[in-house]
């Protein structure tokens, strides 16, 4: 059970003057249960890549396998694929449309042709997983706050019970607490249900805090694919491609420059705190 991309290329506007290679020979393996951060500057190919994972775009070259099957074969059931690989777009709350929150979340599973009872059970569960309070279930989604609306939209995808959940900047425009709540909820869900989560984000701090693996895209190619602490060691290269490391990385570099620490693997505040404390302890002792 996994997603495999083999030499995937995508060229927009082939045979025209406007030809753009959005993906070039991308090879990736995404096993079950990982929490992956996908980063890259605007136009690096992230969005094109994720749209390939549930068959919204087809590669101009190369193959994508989901659970061992080529998803772009004629006989492949792409409708089913889209329920298994759920994609939450940027600003997903713009896609809410139903009269109540609950009905909105029912829309997806209903279209899968499930029985009414099953549809409702799934909607209930998904809303709970996304952290929507029960008292809001029968409100109009348009009366909710921005953060709440976004949870409802995420629940709409969770109700499809995907094995892979892809979120394109789920925290854009949310206040700091809203960011932490949504990402915390997703992390919890990922741990409990063992689904694969791919988080597209522009916040290096969020990525460092939550994911196990980072894929860095640049000019349609995979630049790095490793654990956060390894990727953020390459902060100079990241800056060259319009990205950065979390602020913590820069803080720890200042400590190293001052001869305070010899090296640092910290990418989160918690880790940085421990490194500094253990250094001070050694110095004393």
């Amino acid at each position: 059970m996994s997603l495999i991309l083999e030499n995937v290329s995508h060229i927009y506007g082939e045979d025209t003057d406007m030809v753009v290679a959005a993906l070039k020979e991308v090879n990736l393996e995404i096993p079950d249960g990982q929490f992956i951060g996908l980063i890259g500057h605007t136009g690096s190919g992230k969005s094109t890549l994720i749209q390939h994972l549930n068959g919204l775009l087809q590669p101009t070259k190369g193959t994508i396998y989901f659970n061992g099957q080529d998803i772009n074969e004629k006989s492949y059931n792409r409708k089913e694929l889209r329920s298994k690989v759920g994609l939450v777009f940027q600003y997903p709350e713009h896609q809410l449309f139903e009269v109540t929150v609950f009905q909105d979340v029912c829309f997806g599973p209903k279209n899968l042709g499930l029985e009414q009872k099953e549809v409702e059970m799934r909607a209930y569960k998904a809303l709970k997983q996304a952290g929507v309070k029960e008292e809001l279930f029968y409100h109009s989604p348009f009366d909710l706050s921005g953060g709440q609306k976004r949870r409802v939209a995420i629940a709409g995808v969770l109700a499809m019970e995907p094995q892979v959940l892809i979120l394109d900047e789920p925290t854009a425009g949310l206040d700091p607490a809203g960011r932490d709540e949504i990402l915390g909820q997703i992390k919890k869900l990922q741990k409990e249900t063992k689904i694969t989560v791919i988080l597209v984000s522009h916040s290096m701090e969020d990525v460092a805090e939550y994911v196990d693996r980072i894929i860095v895209m640049n000019r349609g190619e995979v630049l790095f694919d490793d654990m956060p602490k390894e990727v953020f060691k390459e902060y100079k290269k990241l800056e060259e491609v319009g990205l950065a490391a979390p602020q913590v990385t820069y803080i720890m570099n200042s400590f190293i420059k001052e001869g305070f620490l010899t090296s640092s693997e910290a990418t989160t505040i918690q880790e940085a705190k421990e490194e500094i404390l253990s250094f001070l302890k050694k110095k004393k002792g």
Binding site: G40, H41, Q90, E169, G173, G242, L243, A244
Partner: peptide, 13 residues
């Protein structure tokens, strides 16, 4: 009004 909410790190800078 939140001019950087939709931007990548470089764009924000």
């Amino acid at each position: 009004d939140e001019p950087t909410a939709m931007l990548d790190p470089n764009g924000r800078k």
